[in-house]
């Protein structure tokens, strides 16, 4: 299951809508091993394409260095599909290289419908998971410990 803040959920959707008709992409980083997506990092789609996305190579190096320095990892890797459903394409599956990440897909094919789904992609195998949107992650944790 993916649990995330409403503010981050909305920021991902807003980014996807903004970049439509091109695909939008980005990361939500969090402390290593925490499974907490806390830092929203929209990325530039270097391919600027309605059917493909790729992080710019210099941006990618900067992103990973920065996460490394902060003790973070990509908890969510998101991108949008602009004309098809929010399900990983064959290309998405073949390039997926973060077995610990939640791969979030947003479809912007219909301006009035939100399609936001999350998947694990490990060794070419796709598993959909539940998405739980909460007011803030801190509240969830406080109620879990009391």
């Amino acid at each position: 299951m993916l649990t995330l803040d409403r503010s981050i959920y909305e920021a991902i959707i807003a980014h996807a809508r903004r970049d439509h008709p091109d695909e939008a992409c980005g990361v939500v980083a969090g402390p290593v091993g925490s499974d907490r997506p806390t830092r929203f990092i929209p990325m530039v789609n270097a391919a600027r394409s309605p059917t493909f996305y790729e992080f710019d190579s210099a941006d990618l190096l900067r992103l990973y260095r920065e996460m490394d320095e902060r003790g973070e990892e990509p908890v969510i890797i998101y991108h949008s599909h602009t004309a098809t459903e929010a399900y990983p394409s064959r290309t998405d599956i073949s390039y997926a290289s973060e077995p610990n990440a939640h791969y979030v897909l947003v479809s912007t094919r219909d301006p009035d419908t939100v399609e936001f789904r999350s998947f694990r992609i490990v060794d070419g195998e796709v598993t959909e998971e539940e998405v739980r949107v909460v007011a803030t992650l801190d509240d969830v944790e406080r109620s879990a410990t009391t």
Binding site: E54, F55, T91, S97
Partner: peptide, 10 residues
């Protein structure tokens, strides 16, 4: 030297 898989897809 840093090796990083591209973050890419369709």
């Amino acid at each position: 030297v840093t090796v990083l898989p591209a973050v890419a897809g369709g």
